[in-house]
């Protein structure tokens, strides 16, 4: 069997590939390991919970409205640490650069990484760089790994019936911005990626109430994240269509592209399941943070399985994890 693009796009198909890649006996260092496929691993060291995570970042275009690959590379890992309840401490950075890459662009990327680090008090402490010959690689790839420390570890599988589902802001901004650019739709700067480091946002929420589960809705978008959380928690979730926060411009663009904004990546959002009594307080805490102003309670955890949506017209349908990367459609 050959790897195809669907294997990389999240969801069930990706699951198959992950079964191959995670088929290791040495997959856990005494805490939460690779087998959990959570946002990060946890390693108990000397009485502390060390959180450890990694992501490869490939994005086209590398500079886009609202950010660039450097900002994504830092935020992607900061956010995975935060999703586990981890305060980000240190990042590594592995760059693979195609021959011919502009050094000035590299400078911009590095400055952007520094700025993102600045927002959350973490440092990039170790790195590696490889240059590949023209033709072997199209575009820069940045891997970051991160170390954090969690006072209390939060999993993505802790949803409990009755929990309120909260998203920290508008959905689909990053994915639609990128998709439009990539497919040659010129929206200029009308749609901005939401890429942002979420630690301080999450920190505030953690201090306010009982968060049962968190996940950042990146690859596969909200649809994928909420399904993964529900499946791992062995519960059902009901989402209220009218409660979902969208930017109007994103909705317009999604309509034009024929793409469901629930299925595209966000890079500065968190989906959480919180104890119902704490939901309002946590919502208020999120809304008091610049990255959480549009936070909303969008649904509820129920017994059972599957994620469904109560639509505006009163209907009900499933929200499914997407198969493959979305493609613009006209019909």
């Amino acid at each position: 069997m050959k790897v195809n693009l669907m294997h990389g796009a999240g969801g069930e198909v990706m699951g198959e590939l992950l079964r191959v890649i995670t088929n290791l006996r040495h997959n856990n260092a005494g805490g939460i390991g690779l087998e959990s496929l959570d946002d990060g691993a946890v390693i108990p060291l000397n009485g502390q919970n060390i959180v450890f995570t990694t992501d490869n970042h490939v994005v086209s275009p590398i500079f886009f409205p609202g950010g660039d690959i450097g900002r994504i590379a830092v935020c992607g890992t900061i956010n995975d640490l935060a999703m586990m309840g981890g305060r980000p401490v240190a990042l590594s950075c592995g760059m693979v650069i195609p021959e011919g890459f502009d050094v000035a662009d590299l400078e911009r990327i590095v400055a952007s990484m520094d700025a993102a680090l600045d927002e959350c008090g973490a440092s990039l402490v170790t790195g590696d760089t490889k240059v590949l010959e023209r033709g072997a690689l199209d575009a820069i790839i940045i891997n970051t790994a991160g170390i954090g420390v969690a006072e209390r570890v939060v999993r993505d599988n802790g949803l409990v019936p009755g929990d309120a589902i909260i998203v920290s802001g508008t959905i689909g901004d990053h994915g639609i911005a990128i998709m439009a650019h990539r497919e040659g739709f010129d929206f200029g700067g009308q749609i901005h990626s939401d890429v942002a480091p979420l630690w301080t946002l999450v920190e505030g929420a953690l201090a306010t109430g009982d968060i049962h589960a968190m996940k950042d809705p990146t690859r596969g978008g909200f649809a994928n994240a909420i399904n993964e959380m529900a499946k791992k928690s062995r519960v059902g979730v009901v989402i209220e269509e009218e409660a979902l926060p969208f930017r109007k411009s994103v909705q317009s663009a999604a309509g034009m592209l024929g793409i469901d904004p629930l299925e595209v990546a966000n890079e500065g959002k968190v989906v959480m399941g919180v104890a119902p009594d704490d939901a309002e307080a946590i919502l208020a805490a999120l809304r008091s943070h610049p990255y959480g102003r549009d936070a909303a309670i969008v649904g509820e955890v129920i017994e059972g399985s599957h994620v469904t949506m109560r639509t505006a017209i009163g209907g009900e349908r499933f929200i499914e994890p997407p198969i493959g990367d979305p493609v613009p459609r006209v019909c």
Binding site: M309, T311, A312, I313, G315, E316
Partner: peptide
């Protein structure tokens, strides 16, 4: 499908799809 319309229709009203998708 997106609106879950079939779930709210009268049970004796069925909507089927004809050859309307160019793909």
């Amino acid at each position: 499908a997106r609106a879950g319309l079939r779930s709210v229709l009268p049970s004796n009203l069925k909507i089927v799809m004809g050859p309307g998708c160019p793909v």
